[in-house]
Nucleic acid binder design. Structure first.
Length: 542
RNA sequence: GCCCCGAUAGCUCAAUUGGAUAGAGCAACGGUCUUCUAAACCGUAGGUUACAGGUUCGAUUCCUGUUCGGGGUACCA
């Protein structure tokens, strides 16, 4: 609807040979101001140096002359808004569209881009935390939004299985093994102390028949631990419906010479220099305060170099859109990666970096400090155990990325039967139940129902919300914030519950019953579709 | 010091590229089940949008400054 009015207005502007791009067309919050409203006359007033109300009147005549019967009334209101009242038929037609188009309802033509989304990317040193969970759900849902638009999406997980962290992991397992064998052996400084390390140690001893390698840093033990932890991580993600297509590890970048390639390109272009035994990158040429070390005196690269090599690979793999999802603590690292890529001559405009704020966890009103090393965290798995995957997913999506997410453990548990996600699912279950009930009442077909009978305000409100679906998806697509879909669904469910409370669907009036059943069926399709984009199930019975 | 994010109802948060009377949920209080699920609906109450300026027809939104939180600012990742 907004798009329709927008194009109508643009057409008129063109015919008047006027240029104006920053006018808005939107749904006003107050229904008195119509279904759609525009400030175009207010904006034109500046250009034309004329009273906005007079401009509005002129525009109204133009619009009325051009439009089809979709708009039933146009009003011009001070200070110069033009308000549109849409004909009921337009909203009623949503029912037909939903039934005919199904999951393609309001879907634009297939975009067909190659999209890559990197998210989670936790190194395999321990179970996923609640912080990782936010990223997992956010990334997956953004992926689903891109898929809805008909893009080819690759979900990717990048990890480092070679660094110092992994050595500490190996040492920690080694120490636990020693302890299990009855020896005094301390957990190394900065090692991992979680219970899962003991379990891995037990498994390792069992598999190796109690024979340990001589060296605590032995690759075998590190790889064993990493494999175990990785399968834990995958299992956890799977519970949330998150499945990565590609796992890329940092070690391969070394063995395949990708790191050296980056260094030699940058060297050749003159962006590297040696100082104090280290290799430095001229980051100041790209706006940084200081130059950055790329290779330490010890010969090891800093984290920036593999990150750059990895992103170069992404660009070379031919993606049209590359999205990185990181926690807020990464905000300083991306500019260096971008600078490195630009120094090599790559176009970084395809890369979108999304930073989400942290997740804090409170228990009994107190902040729970989370550290993987100390293992005093609540794991993502435990959270899923507590409230179930649907609630976890929905809670993570309900906030914008820029907002801190406070997860109150008590509340998450207590709310599990009085929760916003159940509100949505309940609406869906109600719809299913109505349809089931109608069959029991002997109404075996209702898709021939007459949509023109859907004329009460509560009924039309549901259809009006349905008509906004495409616009909401657009907002999600533009802002990459799935949160907008959650607020939309809340609205859809509210209007439906209200309709349900006011009007009985199945009555003695067969014609009216059929019309309403048809609508219920259509809205159920929409609700299920939208819940699916969020990765939340749509139950038929609750 | 510098950079990023935030500050809106008692609590957790919205407000779709600057719009008209700032909205939900939870918590509080009151009402609604003989009828398709009361996990619902209706109503009441709750606000100087952190503070001070500025930009304009119009600011929660944009700009400047201040205060308070969170995160960064490594030859850690």
């Amino acid at each position: 609807m907004i798009a329709y009015i927008q194009s109508l207005l643009s057409e008129i502007l063109r015919d008047m040979s006027l240029e104006l791009s920053d006018f808005t067309v939107e749904h006003p919050s107050n229904p008195e101001f119509g279904d759609v409203s525009t400030n175009i006359a207010l904006k034109l007033a500046h250009v034309l140096k004329k009273n906005p109300l007079l401009i509005a009147e002129d525009l109204r005549k133009e619009i009325e002359a051009r439009q089809e019967s979709i708009i039933k009334k146009i009003e011009c209101v001070p200070p110069g808004f033009i308000n549109f009242f849409v004909a009921d038929e337009f909203y009623q037609s949503m029912v037909e569209r939903l039934i005919n188009e199904g999951s393609n309802f309001m879907k634009p033509t297939r975009e067909g881009k190659k999209v890559q989304i990197e998210f989670v990317s936790a190194n395999p040193t321990g179970p996923l935390t609640i912080g990782h969970g936010r990223q997992a759900v956010l990334g997956d849902t953004i992926a689903r939004i891109f898929e809805w638009y008909g893009n080819d999406v690759t979900r990717e997980y990048y990890f480092n299985n070679a660094g110092r962290q992994m050595q500490r992991l190996g040492e920690s397992v080694y120490a636990r093994c020693k302890q299990l064998l009855g020896e005094e052996y301390p957990i190394p400084e900065g090692g991992y102390e979680g219970e899962y390390i003991k379990e891995i140690a037990q498994e390792y001893l069992k598999e190796k028949k109690n024979v340990l390698p001589k060296n605590p840093l032995d690759e075998d033990i590190i790889n064993f631990a990493a494999d175990r932890i990785f399968s834990m991580i995958r299992e956890t993600l799977k519970r949330l419906g998150v499945i990565h297509d590609v796992f890329t590890n940092e070690r391969d970048l070394y063995t395949e010479g990708k790191i050296d390639e980056v260094l030699s390109i940058l060297r050749k272009k003159g962006y590297l220099y040696d100082k104090d035994g280290a290799i430095w990158f001229k980051a100041t040429l790209f706006g940084a305060e200081k130059d950055r070390v790329f290779v330490k005196r010890s010969g090891e690269p800093t984290y920036r170099l593999p990150d750059i090599a990895y992103h170069r690979e992404k660009l070379l793999r031919g993606f049209d859109v590359i999205i990185d999802i990181f926690g807020a603590d990464h905000h300083a690292t991306y500019p260096d990666v971008k600078a490195g890529l630009e120094a090599m001559g790559y176009d970084t405009s395809k890369i979108i970096v999304l930073l989400h704020q942290f997740v804090t966890l409170t228990r009994d009103g107190k902040l729970v400090k989370m550290s993987t090393r100390k293992a005093n965290f609540v794991t993502l798995d435990e959270l899923i155990d507590l409230v179930g995957p649907d609630v976890v997913r929905y809670f993570y999506l309900i906030r914008s990325m820029d907002a801190h997410l406070n997860f109150d453990l008590e509340l998450a548990q207590k709310e599990s039967d009085e929760n916003p996600v159940f509100y949505l699912q309940y609406a869906h279950a109600r719809m299913s139940n109505i349809l089931k009930h109608s069959q029991q009442k002997g109404i075996d077909y209702y898709l021939d129902g007459d949509i023109h009978l859907l004329s009460e305000p509560e009924t039309l409100d549901v259809l009006k919300v349905a008509a906004e679906f495409g616009e909401v998806m657009e907002v999600c697509r533009r802002t990459l914030e799935p949160m907008h879909l959650t607020t939309y669904l809340q609205k859809l469910a509210t209007t439906f519950h209200k309709f349900y409370a006011t009007h009985r669907v199945v009555t003695d009036d067969l014609l009216l019953s059929k019309a309403r059943l048809k609508m219920v069926y259509a809205i159920k399709t929409l609700l299920a579709e939208a819940l699916g984009i969020l990765g939340v199930t749509a139950p038929d019975v609750m």
